[in-house]
Structure formats: structure tokens, C-alpha cells
Amino acid sequence: MAAFLARRLVQSALILLGVSFVTFVLLYALPADPVRQIAGRSATAETVENIRRELGLDRPFIVQYARYLGGLLQGDLGRSYLQKTEVAELIAARLPATLLLMLGAIIAELAIGLTMGIIAALRRGTATDTSLMVASFVGVSAPQFVVGLLLLYVFAVQLQWFPIGGYGTLAHLVLPALTLGILGAGWYSRMMRSSMIDVLRQDYIRTARAKGLARRRIVLRHALPNAILPIIAMIGIDIGIFMGGIVVVESVFGWPGIGQLAWQAIQRVDIPIIMGVTLVSAFAIVLGNLLADLVTPFIDPRIRIR
């Protein structure tokens, strides 16, 4: 176990190092010149050169990367070109909003997805089952900006149940969390359905039935706990999927999280912020996968850590 953990941690660190390198190369290749953006249109060539030197952007690629990496090891993500603030501070200020949104999305996708999956499994082969599974496919086929705008139009503009955008109360959270969660609900309902069907086929369920237990009790007490367990491990993997979605969802709903921060930075070529958000996202993804791997053997002892 300790050896496995150590190996996975080293692997994760190497992956993050790789991500930082690839992102750095990509952003270095960016044709838009950040210095021009900072200096403004009317700046003289001298001013531009001064800023370039000040930011260290006149150095060779490898030197720039080494400096960045050195800072990174001390938890320093650099400074924003335009806002003159530490990137780490900007991200830390925005992170709670994004984490809250993700928590809401996890609750939404589990509530919708698991319910759909359980009903479909119990009504297997019927029209209910087919409709639910088609619905789950609609969920995974709908781009998040379309879902977001649709929810916004129906529940905020027309029915006025929820605010149109912004941040602060629980009511603000509902629509963006739902938008982010619907995609996952589609996957969860399919996984839950097949997991439930597998469990319902097991001998111990037949025994329970033969004992004459009520169907309700068999489903809720005997089948459900075992069917849900393998699905819990998937939550870790969700984090990666959310990381892409937040850019869109946060911009549709004006949610002040790191997705919006990244999107604004991309438009303004504020490279240190793009770098920082990409690294934080990659860190979250790697951590999520690691958690999924670590949780699985506890849930299902048949799966041993090698």
C-alpha cells in the first residue's frame, strides 16, 4: 500500500511537471505578444523593450521555464501581467466559488443520475427504461452552453424562480450546478443501471427473495448499497470533466470562479494566469484520479492494489 502510494505520488508529480512544460511551450508559441498588451498601443519601442526585460521575457525559453519552475516549487505562480497581483492570490480568491459550484454539480448529478439509473434497472426492458436511457443520452449530447441558456431562459427569465446570474445565495447556485451536473447525470444513470442489474442477478438477492422479503426492502437494503459502491469511485474522475465545463458554465452565469478567471486571461493574453489555472486544473484532475484509485479497493476488496 505504502509502495503503491509512493509510486503513484511520484507518477502524479511527473505528470504535473509534464503539464507545466507543455503549457509553457504552448503559451511561449502564442503569436499574440503579451508585452504589447501591457504597454498599450502608444508605447515607444524603448518602453516595450524595458517591460520585456523587466518581465524576463527577453531571456531564452529554457531560462524562462527554469525560473518559472523554481518559483513553482515555492508555491509561487508568478504575477499577472495586467493586474499586477500574485496569480496564486487571484486563484485562491476565486477557488472557493468554483469548489462550491462543483459540490453543487456533484449533488445534482448524483441525485438525478442515480435515481434515473435505479428506476431504469427496476423497470428493465419496459418503455420507462428505454425513455430514461434515451434521456440520459440527451444529457450527454447537450453542450453545456445550450443547457445553461435553456435553464436560464425557462427558470430565470420566464418563471423567475432563480436569479439570472451572479453569486452569493443558494438560489444563485441552483442553475449553474444543474447545468454542470446534467452531463454527469447522463453517465451516472447508465452506470447505475448496469451496476444495479448486475447486483440484482446475484445469488444473495435470490436468497433474499426466496426468504420472502418485501421487494422494497430487497432493493433498498440489499441491492442498493452494493450497486452504489463502485459508482462512488467515479466522483474523483468527475473533477476532470468539470474542469473543462467551468469555463463555459461560469461565463454563461457570471459565476466568479477560476473558469471565468481563465477565460478573461485568455482573451487578454495574461499568460501567468492561464498557466496557473491550467496547473491547478491538472492538479485537481491528477488528485481526483488518484483518489478514485485509492478508494476502489476499500469499496471492493476483490480489487487489490498491485
Binding site: 504552448l26 476532470g240 474542469m243 473543462g244 469555463v247 463555459v248 481563465a262 485568455i266 491550467t278 491538472a282
Partner: peptide
């Protein structure tokens, strides 16, 4: 290992960066 590395990238963020380049 390179595939693993690509999997750690948030796909949409990567696409946005590439599209901006």
C-alpha cells in the same frame, strides 16, 4: 506516459489555448 500527461489536461482549456494560438 505522454497519453497520461494529455489526460491530465482539462480538454476544453487545452483546446481554448490551442485555438487562441
Amino acid at each position: 506516459r505522454f497519453t497520461d500527461l494529455m489526460m491530465a489536461f482539462p480538454a476544453l482549456l487545452l483546446a481554448i489555448c490551442l485555438a487562441a494560438i
